[in-house]
């Protein structure tokens, strides 16, 4: 993953990962995100087809999709640029920003008899 730090954020390019079993390339079947779209970490990013199977690749981080580096149907070599993100500088580099959803509970209290 390459990173270019900018004043307000950083661009990160995610390269086609090694999909295992010595596969050296994959075909982009379908993009599941568009340029300009804000996506969450682990959100499905793209569907790829190798000579073994079709696999869905999850996003390695949250951010805005800046550029897709291959068209659907195009064959990419492992290590070639797949997608470039703009990641929010303010979110920090490690970990995720916790959600502010109200927690749930099952336990109900019985007030003390005073």
């Amino acid at each position: 993953m390459s990173e270019t730090a900018g004043p307000g954020g950083a661009e990160r390019t995610f390269a086609l990962p090694d999909l295992g079993e010595g596969l050296v390339e994959a075909t982009v079947l379908e993009w599941l995100v568009r340029a300009g779209e804000h996506i969450e970490r682990n959100q499905p990013l793209v569907e790829l087809e190798t000579s073994k199977s079709a696999v869905e690749i999850p996003s390695p981080h949250s951010g805005t999709v800046a550029r897709l580096h291959a068209a659907e149907g195009e064959v990419l070599a492992v290590g070639a640029a797949l997608v470039t993100f703009e990641v929010e500088a303010s979110a920090g580099i490690v970990g995720t920003v916790p959600t502010e959803e109200r927690p749930t509970r099952r336990v109900r209290l019985r007030p003390p008899s005073e």
């Binding site: 949250s62 303010s90 979110a91 920003v97 916790p98 959600t99 502010e100």
Partner: peptide, 21 residues
């Protein structure tokens, strides 16, 4: 991911709302 703070460089001690960052 929910709210994202603006860059801390813009923090102003007199403003009424801040993130901990």
């Amino acid at each position: 991911m929910t709210e994202l703070a603006t860059t801390p460089a813009s923090a102003d001690a007199t403003a009424s709302e801040h993130s901990m960052q």
